[in-house]
Nucleic acid binder design. Structure first.
Lengths: 219, 219
DNA sequence: ATCCTTTAGATTGTATCCAATCACTCGAAA
DNA sequence: TTTCGAGTGATTGGATACAATCTAAAGGAT
């Protein structure tokens, strides 16, 4: 990502960035409360920038604020998780379509490296990491103002749940994912927009349906 | 909409709400600067809640904040407008699909009343008003957490531009829209999800392409 | 004349203090 | 035993004061 936009980052932004990293890394669990005073002490700042940072994270969907009450790490029930996946099915293929024509050969090589790591991943944690990197990198070419935000936000909020749910999945799932990722990679290299869209749609949809099945089995 | 959620509204929220109304009503033009001190005076409050309100509006996409510099009413160039329409094409049909099964007969009657007004609208301003009401009401049945936000946000940010661009459109456009709205209404009454999705997709897409053509003609 | 640097004013960002609100405990009454 | 209500401590919301930063204008050098 070529970011030149903001030269002078306010501390509220810096705090928001660090907190975001922590949340995505799983330091805070969904539903965990964030107390302004504690955060202020942790970041050696007053509550003002903390409050602003929390608002920014709320916009990212990572934090939920309730007035006069507090801030919590956003928690999704399964219905909400499913909804986000349905949105992803519709939106990410578009993002991919807008991206592919602008992917450089350098970026495509990078994608192949990550795909290799993804296909040889042995732990769930590795799989999650490279899966995220791979997909988000395929969108790198898209020059967008809003779509990118929406997509990132969905990946952010579903992150802890992807971790949780992927432990349920059968081994079969990962081999399907493997095949789909390879097909996707080929479509990208051919710059076949329609095919790439179709594969990605199917990929996300299949994952959603499998999760649905598995969680129903559990009750 | 049945909203019971927040009992005790903070003043920052109240300010955000009022500002939002003003912006959508066209009081501030896209690109206009919002100075915190001036807003504070206008709302008889200090800058703290103003700053929070601006952050909330930023999340709504109505305002753009640049650190150490200021806040402006979000301004879209035509490419961004087009992008939002492309997202709408993908996302709103889904919203409609989720909504239709939960539409009550009372709501459907309401829709027919608005459709009648829409079809007999004589001014662009009337058309815009009833068009917005009609479409958003067709989504009323959808029980969603994120999708609704996304859709509302897109209607919000494109509002001033729909006004601007619809003055360019030929009379032909409005008759097409008329026909599509009627087809959509019928599909909704039949609860034909696939058909409704298809019609809505085409409706949004056609509008986008016509706007593209017209603006290219102008230069 | 143009470009760069400096400087003053305006505006945003942060710290601190006080007020408003919430949540929870404790106690009393049914 | 349960339920309701008052009171208290903790936490968030808002006001004010000060610091940091940006912007634009003025002046000097090339």
């Amino acid at each position: 990502m070529v970011l030149v936009s903001d030269e002078n980052i306010a501390t509220s932004q810096a705090i928001a960035g660090e907190l975001k990293e922590s949340i995505l890394a799983g330091k805070y669990k969904p539903g965990a409360r964030l107390v302004q005073d504690e955060l202020a002490e942790e970041f050696r700042a007053s509550r003002s920038p903390i409050r602003e940072a929390l608002r920014m994270l709320e916009a990212d969907g990572l934090v939920t604020i309730k007035s006069h009450s507090g801030a919590w790490i956003t928690e999704l029930d399964f219905a909400e998780f499913e909804e986000l996946y349905q949105i992803r099915e519709r939106v990410e293929p578009l993002m991919l379509r807008l991206s592919i024509p602008h992917l450089t050969t350098k970026l495509i090589k990078e994608l192949e490296v990550i795909l290799e790591k993804l296909n040889t991943a042995t732990t769930v944690e590795q799989f999650l990491k490279y899966d995220r990197e791979f997909h988000l990198l395929t969108y790198e070419g898209a020059i967008t103002s809003y779509l990118g935000e929406i997509v990132q936000r969905m990946w952010n909020t579903t992150q802890p749940y992807r971790r949780r749910y992927s432990q349920i999945l059968e081994r079969e799932h990962f081999t399907s994912a493997h095949l789909e990722h390879t097909l996707l990679m080929n479509a990208i290299k051919r710059a076949d927009l329609d095919d790439a869209e179709r594969i990605l749609f199917g990929h996300i949809r299949r994952t959603r349906l499998e999760l649905q099945d598995q969680t129903e089995k559990e009750g």
